[in-house]
Amino acid sequence: MGNLLEVNDLTIKFRTAKATSTAVRNVSFSLEAGETLCIVGESGSGKSITSLSLMGLLPENGEVSNGSIRLNGEELVGKTEEELRKIRGNEISMIFQEPMTALNPVFTVGYQIQEPLRIHKRMSKQEATVKSVELLKQVGIPNPKEKIHQYPHELSGGMRQRVMIAMALACEPSLLIADEPTTALDVTIQAQILDIMDDLKEEFGMGVVFVTHDMGVVAEIADRVMVMYAGDVIEVNDVQTLFEDPKHPYTKGLLGAVPNVDDETQEMKVIPGSMPSMEDDIPGCRFHPRCPMAMDICKEKKPALIDVGKENAAVRCWLQEVDTNADTTIAASGGFENVLSD
């Protein structure tokens, strides 16, 4: 069976007044139906841009300059706006970060859930109302019949995010893109939303692309994880392996930066330095200026994505090359502590 979503060699460029800069470089990944792929990275890593490009919703000065995005074998890159509109909300849907601002304040939530139904399914008002009540019930909103007459400002953040999910799922899409849907919510509400998303994923048999920077959320929801850094994919693996045995120093850094609640004396670990901007031209591996284990080759040549063991698992790091070729083990752990104490 073919994959639900196949992204190949995707490169996204932005035109600015000064120059053209590359936000996402040669990203490839695939997703099966019923699978959740988490895209993880810091702000500016290109994770949100990647997810927007799947919908064809890049900002006006951005464009996919290379590569292909295939949904159920159908090429999305190069489609006209009109063709993309038929796909958006129908086959691919998206949930946004801020439930506070992602709903139009002047319409009732019921009206807004009905929008995709009326756009794509051409439902009558009555049919759409019945369906929207049903959808609200599915996302766990109590008294859906009353709630459809309420305005967004009358609902709490968690409730609004549920409404957004209902709106996204209205036409039963095969692919759901979630751009940090829980970042703006309380931790308890986060857990509820993640549960609902997981349940509905099973129910609808959707593929989910989940963009986040919260490793806790990743552990909760992901089947597979793709780590991005400055527009590059640097590591892909299933969630279990990635958490237990991260290969890339950046992934290790990310996991190390999750604070441990049990250890009160622990100092917060950080990855020194900050994400380079799109315009910065860094020779070699784009992480090497911040990498505690940078070698000479890292500064000169950019490593390729190297397969590690099984299918759909790869790392973009010279250490891996050294590992597999010369079978030398490099003490990777402790690298960041060394940098910190410097």
Binding site: M55, L57, G89, E115
Partner: peptide, 16 residues
């Protein structure tokens, strides 16, 4: 506002 992006994401056209 984000809801305009959200509307585009459900396939609403410019006129709408």
């Amino acid at each position: 506002q984000e809801y305009v992006m959200a509307l585009r994401s459900v396939g609403a056209g410019n006129t709408r």
